[in-house]
Design a protein around this nucleic acid. Structure first.
Length: 303
DNA sequence: CTGCCCTGCCGTCAGCGGCT
DNA sequence: AGCCGCTGACGGCAGGGCAG
């Protein structure tokens, strides 16, 4: 295995997501939650074989942490009608003015970036690490899948969150926005339902889908892609093999584009989360300051 | 200059979930 | 049930930085 790849994965994603972001939380009043990202991070430094699992868990956890913190914040800062909405206290100012103060600080919220589920996951992960130190590497993919249960797509998540909180984070466009700079000979991806190669090297969608244009022939696109025949007209084994090859190349091509798109969305998603963290930190500070001010006003003077 | 490490990006595979 | 899109995981490559 390419340690570089793994290390890279761990270092970039884990460090950036878990450490930097969470650390940036800490500079405020947010209580320490490094126990999660931090411990996972440390563990990844230990065993080679356990690195993938732990790192994956940590990375995902990082994302989950960020998202959950956001959701918590949103529920706190929201109108108070949602689930788990904070207490709203009426505070009478000396001037007679009554204001609503939401119990931001008092809320049983040990850390903005903690979540029970996440801890559960971590326990499971650590337990695995401990007891399978010798037999590690045997964490089968099923277990991993369970731990790292699938989440909705980044686009979905972002769009949902965006609809929750307007103006904080822009939605991810259905189809890219930053690919305007795409060289003209690079395909702007369409997702054709069925594509056939023309003699000019163009994939033409049969439906009302846009067309996928092959980059220059020099880009190593599937040579094996052959003219499609209508399924019924395939008889000889060679034709069948060609058809299979064509399908495979087509699938690879689509997946290639999908992977690119996915990475782009992921980046955008992470950026959004980071910007949310920044916004919420500011918000949090303001609320805390406000609370202090109100306390000063309301509480009897000690001296 | 060379070797090593880090980082970013890419292509591919596997598996899940939604859709028809 | 099969197809298809999405995404985690993995391995590879290129480029930059740095120490020897």
């Amino acid at each position: 295995m390419s340690k570089c790849g793994r290390k890279k994965y761990i270092r970039t994603n884990l460090r950036q997501m878990t450490m930097e972001t969470i650390e940036s939380h800490q500079d405020g009043r947010v209580t320490d939650s490094m126990a999660e990202g931090g411990s996972a991070h440390m563990q990844t430094q230990t065993g080679q074989n356990s690195i993938p699992t732990l790192a994956q868990a940590s990375y995902r956890r990082g994302l989950m942490i960020l998202q959950e913190s956001w959701e918590k914040k949103v529920s706190v800062a929201g109108s108070g009608t949602g689930r788990g909405s904070p207490d709203v206290t009426l505070v009478q100012l000396p001037s007679g003015q009554t204001i609503h103060v939401q119990g931001v600080i008092q809320t049983p919220q040990p850390s903005v970036i903690q979540s029970p589920q996440i801890q559960t996951v971590q326990v499971a992960t650590i337990a695995e690490t401990d007891e399978s130190a010798e037999s590690e590497g045997v964490i089968d993919s099923h277990k991993r899948r369970e731990i790292l249960s699938r989440r909705p797509s980044y686009r979905k998540i972002l769009n949902e969150l965006s609809s929750d909180v307007h103006g904080v984070v822009p939605k991810i466009e259905e189809e890219k926005s930053e690919e305007e700079g795409t060289p003209p000979n690079i395909a702007t991806m369409a997702v054709p339902t069925s594509i056939y190669q023309t003699s000019t090297g163009q994939y033409t969608a049969t439906g009302d889908m846009p067309t996928y244009q092959i980059p220059a022939p020099t880009t190593g696109l599937p040579q094996g892609v052959v003219m499609a025949a209508s399924p019924g007209s395939l008889h000889s084994p060679q034709q069948l093999a060609e058809e299979a090859t064509r399908k495979r190349e087509l699938r690879l091509m689509k997946n290639r584009e999908a992977a690119k798109e996915c990475r782009r969305r992921k980046k955008e998603y992470v950026k959004c989360l980071e910007s949310r963290v920044a916004v919420l930190e500011v918000q949090n500070k303001k609320l805390i300051e406000e609370l202090e001010t109100l306390r000063d006003i309301c509480s009897p003077k000690a001296d």
